[in-house]
Design a protein around this nucleic acid. Sequence first.
DNA 1: ATGCCAGGATGATCCTGA
Length: 274
Amino acid sequence: MRLATWNVNSIRTRVDRVTDWLERADVDVLAMQETKCTDAQFPSMPFAALGYEVAHVGVSQWNGVAIASRVGLADIEIGFAGQPTWSSKPDVEATAEARALGATCGGMRVWSLYVPNGRSLADPHYAYKLDWLAALRDTAAGWLGDDAGAPIALVGDWNIAPTDEDVWSTEAYLGHTHVSEPERAAFHAINNAGFTDVVRPFTPGPGVYTYWDYTQLAFQKRRGMRIDFILGSPALAARVRHAEIGKDERRGKGASDHAPVLIDLDDQPGDTTQ
DNA sequence: ATGCCAGGATGATCCTGA
């Protein structure tokens, strides 16, 4: 079983690139973030043609998360319990944004997550980001409380570089979001709730990233950040036998600014599929 | 402090991203 996550930065702009890679990389389940479209606008036909069902939540040109699966797609949940709300303007009612989507695929529970950016340390969006992560931690801890042996993957764009090794320059990010101690603490709290980074053991740093800014030849200069993660519950983490970052997908014209991240899982005991 | 690049919506310019 191959599970991947990718911030695609507009699925409408990038659907050919994404489906080409899905086929080439032989991915079973792909969680996507920043689809930047409504449900009606999501291009599901190219996925269906390759045998993938797609669940998507998107209500505007912002955010949007999806899960494409060719091993089943059941019990779809939009948003997680307690997910904080956000309003873009004072006169607009705050709502839960399209940043979290859960589904059961091939016996595992997958959550496609697009953690709020934070914008700047003084911005209300930063407090929203920390609230969002704290609520996710509480809810996800509850899932393991209900069933400690559940195979759960929390995957996506976390918008946090958990250690100094995960940014090309600590100086360049001083005073900025993604590297602040509260954000790192919020990320580690999710680790401590039982969800560990299952990719890092197979992709050791330093200098290993999943995101490179579009500007100033950041990719060519190897100026990136590691902010996209696959976090696994203990039962899922025990089955990971390989992981990689699809850095080649960041190359060339028309690339997303994020690379896909994938893992290979051993079959569950007693699993007769494949 | 700002633009650097990119996508989207609207209609040459703003908002957002990280």
